[in-house]
């Protein structure tokens, strides 16, 4: 079985990274996801990135930290990082922590693609 935590798809100049885990909880998984996300920017030079949460039912605050780090890296490279397809329970977590004002959120993939 592959250890890959992200499914990567190219749509034009935009990279769509879809989380494959339903629950982003385990410390080791979160670290792996962080490395894969950062690798998109720093190893592959991708700066137009959509993170697709359609499969994700739960994430911990440690995972939020990885998203903030990813957003910073993309912005530092002059790019844009957009999160989409976030289920309501998880969207509540973003709102409670006010991260919906720091990160760029879109309702679905079409909405996200339309912002580039």
């Amino acid at each position: 079985m592959s250890d890959q935590r992200l499914d990567i798809e190219e749509i034009g100049s935009v990279t769509v990274a879809r989380f494959l885990d339903k629950k982003i909880l385990d410390e080791a998984n979160i670290a792996t996801i962080g490395k894969e996300m950062i690798g998109l920017v720093e190893d592959d030079g991708r700066t137009q990135v959509i993170l697709d949460f359609s499969l994700v039912e739960y994430l911990s605050s440690a995972a939020l930290g990885q998203l903030i780090t990813m957003d910073k890296r993309v912005k530092a490279a002059g790019g844009t990082c957009i999160l989409c397809n976030i289920q309501k329970d998880i969207l509540d977590v973003f709102k409670i922590t006010q991260l919906h004002k720091v990160l760029t959120l879109a309702t679905d993939l079409d909405d996200a693609l339309g912002r580039f």
Binding site: S61, A62, L64, G65, Q66, I68, T69, K72, V93, I96, T97, Q98, L99, K101, V102
Partner: peptide, 20 residues
């Protein structure tokens, strides 16, 4: 964790979430 520069930090949100 929502105030000032703290909102850009990668950690420190656990207590706030539990209270919510």
């Amino acid at each position: 964790p929502t105030s000032g520069d703290f909102i850009h930090r990668a950690s420190g949100r656990g207590l706030m979430l539990m209270r919510a």
